[in-house]
Write a protein that binds this DNA or RNA. Sequence first.
RNA 1: GGCCCGGUGGUCAAGCGGUUAAGACACGGCCCUUUCAAGGCUGUAACACGGGUUCGAUUCCCGUCCGGGUCACCA
Length: 485
Amino acid sequence: MEEVRVRFAPSPTGPLHIGGARSALFNYLFAKANKGKFVLRIEDTDLERSSTESEKNIMDSLRWLGLDWDEGPDKEGQYGPYRQTQRVHFYREYTEKLLSQGLAYHCYCTEEELEAQRQAFAEKGELPRYNGQCYHLTPEQKARYEQEGRVPVVRFRVPAGQDVLIPDLVRGDVVFESEGIGDFVIVKSDGLPTYNYAVVIDDALMKITHVIRAEEHLSNTPRQILLYEALGFAKPQFAHISLILGQDRSKMSKRHGSTSVVQYRELGFLPEAVVNFLALLGWSPGGEEEVMSLERIIEQFSLDRVAKNPAVFDMDKLRWLNGVYIRQSSPEKVAELITPYLSQAGFVSGKPDEREKSWIALVAAALQEHLATGSEIVEHMLLLTGEEVSLESAEAGALLREETFPVVLKAFQEKIAALPELTPENIKPLLKELTKELKLGGKQVYMPLRIALTGRMHGPELYYIIPILGKELIRKRLSKTAALY
RNA sequence: GGCCCGGUGGUCAAGCGGUUAAGACACGGCCCUUUCAAGGCUGUAACACGGGUUCGAUUCCCGUCCGGGUCACCA
């Protein structure tokens, strides 16, 4: 059995898009599920838009997601190089071949001429495409164009009247008529190959067995199949996965909010959650399982369970799933997740010392069950830091004014003062004693205390809030709220 | 507009000729917790429409409608 080889082939023209991440993921899953190889190839033939920053971003994002590749620009294998601009000699070689066989030809048409042609077709109500006129150019005419300084492109001669069949692993057989295609450009005037051309040569040379990519490429595929045939290459299997849609059901793009992987990272999503969520968009294991590790997904993955229909990106569900992962994490990991946000917001220093670290650990423990994303920690902290306290409602104020409260407060302050340090472990029994000794109901103790301390009726457990605030802040906050009852 | 791909609750998504049409998110209720969150239980809510085929269609075929993708010297 031939070794499975798949690739993710992004063009480095921007940060890794969430849709791209899903394509990468499905390729990765298929490779791992079949003990194959996952190749990363950078399609940087658009010199204008490609950048090394984007390339770096894409690689960083993939690594962050845990989708590491077996061969790539930084991991040379036997089919390199893995950046298209470093492979021009391959393309050139095949172009010569196609040209000499009459399967491709030089085209000197200008942009204006092409536009005029498209107009003409459009007026006749036909599909706007290239009319093939340069195929018939005589050597004299070519020479004249060359003299004029026109730089030609190379066009592929599309065979007429042919049905092009795409056997697609997720969609079944899809047929296009070659009539609708028109001779397309395979080498641009800057000498670099176009996408449709480079992708075929690279996939063939890199021995890619399965091309798994987004559905937007489906209508490009017939061109590529024609090229495989002209070049005499064996065709890979194709699998076109459906698109990820925004809330408005159109292809996910910038205007839909957060669309790049780094943005999710910056919001404090966990890579495991993002991967899990993305896998479930267009694929399901069949059963009721939803929270799955990458290993588990690999174990269950198969292309025939990939859905044909597009999926709307549901931020609510991602947030829920991320919350699940946060709750499942160790306290240390949660602390690690929230630290950047805490220091960014100034709650701790950029490089937390031991003292700050133990405070962060307290915060993590207090809020682990309350967070959907890491960055949310900041809004929670606003209530637990600073000297100021403001009452959230009149109802809260009323609870503060209960006649039993002054007694509660006094006893509380005395007990706190007696403790050398405040920890959840010693606060918990302290509060119990308080209700017991004062013979009061919990509601008369916990709620007013909570309000006096935070101004809110809701929040994390008091035995976490108290140590997080610390004696100093507690004293200051209580003196402020004292004025309120 | 041409070509192509889709269409099960608001969203994701099981289902692949006979089911009371799963489950998850979101939403509502109840319980738990002397708060919230989390958790448990529970409720509302779906086969786009019309024709066939069939004893029987969510499932197969055709049409309509709706949505999306694509029509570059971008990938």
